[in-house]
Nucleic acid binder design. Structure first.
Length: 853
RNA sequence: GCCUAGAUGGUGAAAUAGGUAAACACGCAGGACUUAAAAUCCUGUAAUUCAAUUAAUGAAUUUUGCGGGUUCGAUUCCCGCUCUAGGCACCA
């Protein structure tokens, strides 16, 4: 008889609806807060990279629940951000409608993964009840400064009091006062670069750009400086670094964070020339610089601009802009400086460092000569037009500590994000008071989604309301927050989601404390985790939370990779170039565009007809090819932006939820990347069917376990527990199979063995376990059952030893626990051997006896 | 370019603190059942060589991306490479 998963899963889904699993251990003092990073709800739906995380955390939660913990395992959606806005522009629908639809679909899909879901505790970052508090945190940052002495954020009022003691302060006008305060505020205004598309007249994200051109349309991009909100995370870097010691994270993630913060002790050297200063950071205290100096294009180029004629100035800036995002190495400037021994030092500005945020300057070592070998690319430009000859290295060499991480840009020139709760009065920023939050994002029907375009976007300071722009009204900030604003702190809100007065109540925080196990993709290791830790530390300073770190333990979910396909468009032309022909074109003139794999035939050939049919905008394009039009095929992370998503729905339809859950855990270790492949699911499908058939043809005995059975079952529990402890779920599934292979031969079986098997198995495959649980005459859901305890008497009774001669295995022997002593074992086995010949005896407890001749 | 990981049979993978490499599966091959197929069950399955062949089997060597090192012993530790993936600040 085949296992009819459709019928059984439907039945148990309904029954489970009536049980609130999160209240099972309501009175327990032990708690377990497990959390997945919340996803972005894209229109493509949940993919197998998401579901693997949900299933994983659900298995752990179901296990912990029956160990007696009170469980919190919520879900949420990080729903502000670019893709919805892009989709809105394309289709004319409002992003909110798109997001709502997506979320509905996501929840439907998550429900279909067999997980315990608390529908009352869901976070949606674009909900004004939620982003009210995101705005509140922004205001708190705005009204705080960092007291370096106490190493703590404090209210700006305290700073003003201090400043008032200085006589000058009162004399300053408001503008000047604001300028000074801006230097202290934890969120502050500063100019920084954005990707500006002159043709589209918008700022574009890095994702929308390839080779310095916009992917959509293929227009040029330039770097443009704009006034932006920044978060002064640099004040917290020392604390973020020091507190790493409290984290139970894996070494590589901790290392990655450390490097990303990038604390370095360096020496500061200033070089003075006839045109200005260059600052150099070097590792060793040296007065002579022999090597070549390379500067990142982001370095303060004003140094060069001072003595340059206007005519060339513009050209210079253009060339600097070009250097950003260029993939090829290009060198812009070569000047001839002399060090104090009158030897030449060359200075280059180069995109040799793709990381444009590299601090200042790099001194080239001889090793990295390939930089200079690319002489073909040198553009000698500036040295033609001005002379820098006299230079001097100033004598003072200062020790300094620098960090890799800079203050974070916190504003976006977009519509679909949290509005920044700031209005401007005579160009001075003021925050909207807490009472009047949320500052709601206005509705727009226009296709160009920008707060700038909205007429009703000014603040009435008397009525505290949004009003129409006019001469007398105060304009609201036209930027929105970046998408990580809302995801910085959601882990707190889940604890107390419905609280209208506070972010989180003291009482609830005291119980749930912080996240016990946080799960997320490795791509978030640097960004999200660091920003969240920063946010938590700030909230601690202002006494909203009370612990040191937000995530006690973090495990990173290995990325799911899959085949992605892309085609290349020739810049300025309505032309696509087949992948085998792109060698003939300059790299910089090509724009890479991802396409869905439904247009692919024969490995990596494009079905042009179908592609044009479904993508109207490319109707008039020419496809240059030899025989077939080929695409670039790569294996990359599964993501909506790469259009290589696999949706679990069809798999679940074919094999059922239980099989899918088991399969996703079986395909490999959770924290390692894996290429998606569905072939192996048959093995799991067989396994589930075998279990079903076995339970349906049984003679069950109601007797106590004998000695052998006790050993078997206790070791089994031990193994499963151990695997769960170290999160090796793929191995625990193997152990289920092994155990089942052992018991399936018996036609008469004791009920206790079956019960234990099902209780442990139900965390992985809940529905079949419930059905079989009732089949063997239980009357209450299996999830009310406690995880069986191990009887240590039956574990590791005999210890396995390897007997080796000259490192070659001769025999395997077992020693009883009581006799597991070096002397006893050596004596026992040396009797058999001629002792004169022995060179060395190597004995390792619980492992090996190796005799060398 | 910089940073962080990874690489084990035909495939997914396992191997606790350096101690039997390849557990558990998929696939494949052969067999049983069946008119047939599916399903199920059984057997074999890292490679090479040798011995043996009615059958069962036995023995040796090599093997964890490549090249070194430490060690009685390395998939595991160290050094140097290669390739792949992720991150590099406006994808989330």
């Amino acid at each position: 008889m085949k296992y009819n998963f459709k019928k059984i899963e439907k039945k148990w889904k309904l029954k489970h609806k009536k049980i609130n699993f999160f209240k099972i251990n309501k009175k327990s003092k032990k708690k377990f807060y497990i959390l997945n990073m919340i996803p972005y709800p894209s229109g493509y739906g949940l993919h197998v990279g998401h579901s693997i995380g949900y299933i994983f955390s659900d298995i752990i939660a179901k296990y912990k629940l029956r160990c007696g913990y009170k469980i919190l395992n919520p879900i949420g959606f990080d729903s502000f951000g670019l893709p919805a806005e892009q989709f809105a522009i394309k289709t004319g629908k409002h992003p909110e409608i798109i997001i709502k639809k997506s979320i509905k679909n996501y929840i439907k899909q998550i429900k279909n993964l067999g997980i315990f879901l608390d529908l009352k505790n869901i976070i949606n970052t674009c909900n004004s009840n939620y982003y009210k508090w995101t705005q509140y945190i922004f205001i708190k940052l705005f009204n705080s400064w960092y007291d370096n002495k106490n190493k703590k954020a404090k209210n700006i009022k305290i700073l003003i009091k201090k400043l008032k003691k200085e006589k000058k302060w009162e004399k300053y006008n408001n503008k000047k006062k604001n300028k000074i305060l801006n230097k202290y505020r934890l969120v502050f205004l500063k100019k920084s670069f954005v990707n500006w598309c002159p043709y589209l007249k918008t700022v574009l994200s890095n994702d929308e750009i390839y080779n310095n051109k916009s992917i959509r349309g293929g227009y040029k991009i330039i770097k443009k400086k704009m006034l932006q909100w920044h978060i002064r995370i640099t004040k917290y870097l020392d604390r973020l670094l020091n507190d790493i010691k409290y984290l139970k994270w894996s070494k590589n993630i901790i290392n990655s964070q450390k490097k990303w913060i990038g604390k370095k002790k360096v020496f500061l050297i200033k070089i003075k020339s006839n045109v200005g200063y260059i600052k150099l950071y070097i590792k060793k205290k040296k007065k002579n610089i022999k090597n070549i100096i390379i500067m990142a294009p982001s370095y303060n180029i004003n140094f060069f601009l001072k003595n340059i004629k206007k005519k060339y100035k513009n050209e210079f800036i253009k060339k600097i802009n070009k250097l950003y995002n260029n993939e090829e190495i290009k060198i812009l400037i070569k000047t001839n400086l002399l060090n104090n021994k009158n030897k030449k030092i060359n200075i280059y500005i180069s995109n040799y460092f793709k990381n444009k945020y590299i601090k200042g300057v790099y001194i080239l070592k001889k090793k990295n000569n390939n930089f200079l070998n690319k002489k073909n690319n040198l553009i000698y430009f500036l040295n033609k037009h001005f002379n820098i000859k006299k230079i001097k290295i100033l004598k003072k060499i200062k020790k300094k500590i620098i960090f890799n991480l800079n203050d974070i840009v916190f504003s976006r020139q977009r519509y679909w994000g949290e509005p920044i709760p700031i209005y401007y009065k005579y160009n001075i920023p003021f925050n909207i008071k807490k009472k009047y939050l949320p500052l709601k994002l206005p509705n727009i029907n226009n296709k160009i989604l920008k707060l700038k375009n909205i007429n009703k976007w000014a603040w009435d300071i008397k009525k505290n309301k949004i009003i129409n722009k006019s001469k007398n009204s105060y304009l609201l900030d036209i930027n929105t927050m970046p998408s990580f604003a809302g995801s910085n702190w959601y882990y707190l809100r889940f604890i107390d989601n419905k609280n209208k007065k506070k972010i989180i109540s003291n009482k609830k925080e005291k119980f749930w404390k912080t996240v016990d196990l946080y799960i997320g993709g490795s791509e978030h290791i640097n960004g999200h985790l660091l920003y969240s830790r920063f946010c938590y530390k700030f909230l601690k300073d202002i006494k909203i939370v009370n612990f040191k770190e937000p995530f006690k333990k973090f495990i990173n979910q290995g990325l799911i990779l899959y085949y992605s396909f892309s085609i290349f468009r020739l810049y300025k032309y309505k032309k696509f170039i087949s992948y085998d022909l792109i060698k003939n074109y300059k790299k910089n003139n090509l724009i890479k565009i991802y396409i869905k794999n439904e247009f692919i035939i024969n490995k990596n050939e494009l079905n042009i007809k179908l592609f044009i049919k479904k993508n109207n905008e490319y109707k008039k394009f020419f496809f240059k090819k030899k025989k077939e039009f080929l695409c670039l095929m790569k294996i990359e992370k599964m993501s909506k932006s790469k259009l290589n998503i696999i949706n679990p729905n069809s798999i679940i339809k074919k094999y059922g939820i239980d099989v899918f859950r088991l399969y996703q855990m079986f395909i490999g270790p959770f924290n390692k990347k894996k290429i998606w492949n569905i072939e192996k699911i048959k093995g799991i499908y067989k396994f589930i069917n075998k279990i079903w058939n076995y339970f349906n043809n049984l003679n069950i005995i109601n007797k106590k376990l004998n000695y052998k059975e006790n050993i078997l079952i206790n070791n089994f529990i031990y193994k499963i527990n151990n695997n769960l402890k170290f999160f090796n779920l793929n191995v625990s599934i193997s152990n289920f199979m092994k155990f089942f292979n052992k018991i399936k031969k018996k036609k008469k079986i004791k009920i206790k063995i079956l019960k234990i098997f099902l209780i442990l198995f139900s965390s992985f495959s809940p529905y079949i376990s419930e059905e079989l649980w009732f089949l063997i005459k239980n009357k209450k859901s299996i999830f009310f059952e406690k995880i069986p305890k191990i009887n240590k008497e039956f574990i590791n009774l005999k210890i396995k030893y390897l007997l080796m001669f000259n490192n070659k295995l001769k025999n395997v022997f077992y020693i009883k626990k009581e006799k597991n002593k070096k002397k006893y074992i050596i004596n026992k086995y040396l009797k058999k051997i001629n002792k004169k010949k022995i060179k060395k005896i190597i004995f390792k407890k619980n492992k090996i006896l190796n005799i060398l001749f």
